[in-house]
Design a protein around this nucleic acid. Structure first.
Length: 182
DNA sequence: CGCATTTGACCGGCGC
DNA sequence: GCGCCGGTCAAATGCG
C-alpha cells in the first residue's frame, strides 16, 4: 500500500545533513506529455497543471494524504472496454536529482520497454514489478535540459512487502544528489 | 540454467 | 480512414 511512501520516509537526510528531497506528486490523468513539455528552467515551478499537486520540500507526511486523495480518482464512469479495470490508475511522479537512472526503491523491477520521448533526447524506460499479482509499473525519464534530473513515475500500488532490505536505501542516498529545496 | 534486459514489432487511441 | 504517438509484447540475447 504505502511501501513506496515509506521509501520516501527513509529519504530523511541521513547522509547529508541539510538536504531534502524535492518531489513532485501529481495525478496526471492522461500522460506525461505535460512533463515533457514543461520547461525545466525552474525545476520548482514545473507541472503547472490544474490537476497537479506540486509538493516541494519535506512534506513527506503530507504525501500519504495526497496519495489517498489521488487514489480517489474520479471517472467512476464508462463501462467500456474489456470489463476489467478500466479504472484510471493514479500515478505519482517523483522528480529527483540523480546521476544514475536506476533509483532502487527496494522492489524488483523488470524492464519491459524503452521509448524515445519527444522533446527529450533521453529515452524513457518502462519497468514492471516482478512480483506475481503485483501490476505496479513505473517509468523513468531523464530530462534533456537538466540531465541531472530524473523523473520516476509510479503507477499502482504494491500489494506485497518490500523485497530488499530497506537499509539499502542509504546506499541509494549515497548515489543521489538530493536537491536542496532551500 | 534461470532470469533480467534489449529492441523492433505490434496495438489501440486520438487527431487530422 | 489514415497516420502518428505512446505504451506494451515477446523473442533473442546477455549475464550471474
Amino acid at each position: 500500500m504505502e511501501n513506496y511512501t515509506s521509501f520516501l520516509q527513509f529519504s530523511s537526510p541521513t547522509t547529508s545533513g541539510n538536504s531534502s528531497m524535492s518531489l513532485t506528486i501529481g495525478n496526471n490523468s492522461h500522460g506525461f506529455s505535460d512533463l515533457e513539455n514543461t520547461k525545466t528552467n525552474g525545476f520548482l515551478g514545473l507541472m503547472p497543471g490544474d490537476d497537479m499537486d506540486v509538493q516541494t520540500g519535506l512534506s513527506v507526511n503530507k504525501i500519504s494524504e495526497d496519495k489517498s486523495f489521488v487514489g480517489s480518482e474520479t471517472e467512476a464512469k464508462f463501462s467500456k472496454k474489456k470489463g476489467e479495470k478500466k479504472v484510471r490508475k493514479p500515478r505519482y511522479a517523483f522528480q529527483t536529482r540523480s546521476q544514475v537512472d536506476i533509483l532502487d526503491d527496494g522492489y524488483r523491477w523488470r524492464k519491459y520497454g524503452q521509448k524515445a520521448v519527444k522533446n527529450n533526447k533521453f529515452p524513457r524506460s518502462y519497468y514492471r514489478c516482478t512480483h506475481q499479482g503485483c501490476n505496479v509499473k513505473k517509468q523513468v525519464q531523464r530530462l534533456t535540459k537538466d540531465e541531472g534530473v530524473v523523473v520516476t513515475t509510479y503507477e499502482g500500488m504494491h500489494s506485497h512487502a518490500i523485497e530488499k532490505s530497506t537499509d539499502n536505501f542509504e546506499h541509494i542516498l549515497s548515489q543521489m544528489q538530493i536537491y536542496t529545496a532551500f
